[in-house]
Deep mutational scan, measured.
Amino acid sequence: MAAGGDHGSPDSYRSPLASRYASPEMCFVFSDRYKFRTWRQLWLWLAEAEQTLGLPITDEQIQEMKSNLENIDFKMAAEEEKRLRHDVMAHVHTFGHCCPKAAGIIHLGATSCYVGDNTDLIILRNALDLLLPKLARVISRLADFAKERASLPTLGFTHFQPAQLTTVGKRCCLWIQDLCMDLQNLKRVRDDLRFRGVKGTTGTQASFLQLFEGDDHKVEQLDKMVTEKAGFKRAFIITGQTYTRKVDIEVLSVLASLGASVHKICTDIRLLANLKEMEEPFEKQQIGSSAMPYKRNPMRSERCCSLARHLMTLVMDPLQTASVQWFERTLDDSANRRICLAEAFLTADTILNTLQNISEGLVVYPKVIERRIRQELPFMATENIIMAMVKAGGSRQDCHEKIRVLSQQAASVVKQEGGDNDLIERIQVDAYFSPIHSQLDHLLDPSSFTGRASQQVQRFLEEEVYPLLKPYESVMKVKAELCL
């Protein structure tokens, strides 16, 4: 049975990233139509530049190519590739079939990587351009969430054990800070992308030097003109047959890092959902379990974690691919890159769409948070109580021993009897502590235990987050809708 299948058929496997999760716009960027249309555009740009620099290419040939950029006979191309065992030459023939007058000058002087690699770089750039505003929107939604809850005390956790208090907004800023680093890295790697350009079979530009009869300047002009037509500021000066596969490492490393950030955020949300302090959106008709109707599973956060793990592992592909590119190139890269580049971007696209949807509907339960604080705060307040007693004339050592005994009794009630923490009640009825009984409410005010959390939130948002989001103001209103 021949390899390949009808990918629109229910009898043929289709990647869930495309069929179930990723956005239509990201799927289109990695589609065959987008790819092969870009090949034709690159052939047109090459012909236009070659004509401008004096090669015998007519206006009629150029116009014929322009008129057929979208006229792609995919069936013919597939048949040609089956016959020739070469995808680029299959599309040269297919393009030439609908451009008979231009057929002889299509791909003039070029090698397969002229269309293959340059198209990949265009796709990487455009895919990054799709991700950047999506990530900015996630940051914006979380920034709104953090600002609104900047002063809401909550129990902090280290080692997932109760620690000092923080605020809900401050905790959210930990998430935002990681995503801001990801946004900066995505922008950097996007701006650092260079075009492969017009380089020939081993990167020496020998074929173009021959076409222009040894004119170095025209060869350099050709490279520059096509690079500018493709919208790049610069091209690699040095290439082998391909652009260095280190570029793929750079791009997928940034995406993998984004995956790590999203995994951490969504894990926190899942843990908070278990504590009943916070939940992701839950639709009115949504079913959490087929057997347990009360369940409210954090399905979206779980999906993000599941896909983020996949995204983090994909960076190993370009690392290994770059390491086995012998001399000017081997074909070890080809099949692998067809999979890992598309999957990385479709996965990143999915987790950003999902995280935006989550961040637009996060639900906080202040009463649950308050109750958990009441359970733990008495123990945390013991040092403040000791200091207040010393100020009232008591002995630190005597007070410490009193607190120690009462704390152990209260802990026994919590752990052995399943009761509430009654340390404060014990202190309130103990005559030894009568000098500070009137101060206990103040000493137990949760806001006095959150330090500068709310001020940190305000400063972080104003100095770091809002300036970073400013270039994306025009796209901030787009909502994230999930079908599944």
Rank of each mutant, 00 (worst) to 15 (best):
D192Y: 09
Q241S: 02
L461H: 15
A143K: 04
L46V: 11
G4M: 11
V115F: 10
P10L: 10
H91W: 01
C304A: 01
R188G: 10
Q397E: 09
A344I: 03
L252S: 13
V251F: 11
L307D: 03
M476E: 13
A110Q: 02
P366Y: 11
L443T: 05
Y114H: 00
P471C: 04
K224N: 00
R396I: 04
T450A: 07
L423P: 13
A273C: 12
S412A: 09
M65F: 00
S112A: 08
R137P: 13
C483D: 14
N421H: 00
S306Q: 03
T94L: 10
L135S: 12
G394C: 09
V405G: 04
G231F: 03
K229P: 00
E79P: 00
T267P: 12
D268N: 13
K187N: 15
Y114M: 13
A146P: 03
Q456A: 14
S290P: 05
F449G: 05
M292F: 14
V92L: 08
H263A: 12
I265R: 13
A103H: 07
Y21Q: 08
S15P: 11
P378W: 10
L165Q: 15
E80N: 03
L124W: 11
V168L: 12
Q184D: 03
L341R: 03
R337S: 04
K233S: 05
L179S: 02
L352A: 03
L55W: 11
F28L: 03
V138R: 04
M26N: 04
T111S: 01
T204D: 03
K295L: 03
K479Q: 15
N421W: 05
C483Q: 15
L346P: 05
F236Y: 12
M278C: 13
R20G: 07
S306N: 01
V198L: 02
E250W: 15
G5M: 14
L272K: 10
N118C: 15
Q205V: 00
H263E: 09
A110N: 00
S151Y: 02
P435R: 04
D191R: 08
T166N: 11
L311Y: 01
T94D: 01
Q409N: 10
Q210V: 02
D73L: 03
H310R: 11
I424N: 09
I105K: 09
D191E: 14
S19Y: 01
D317K: 03
T350N: 07
N274E: 04
I57T: 06
E425T: 13
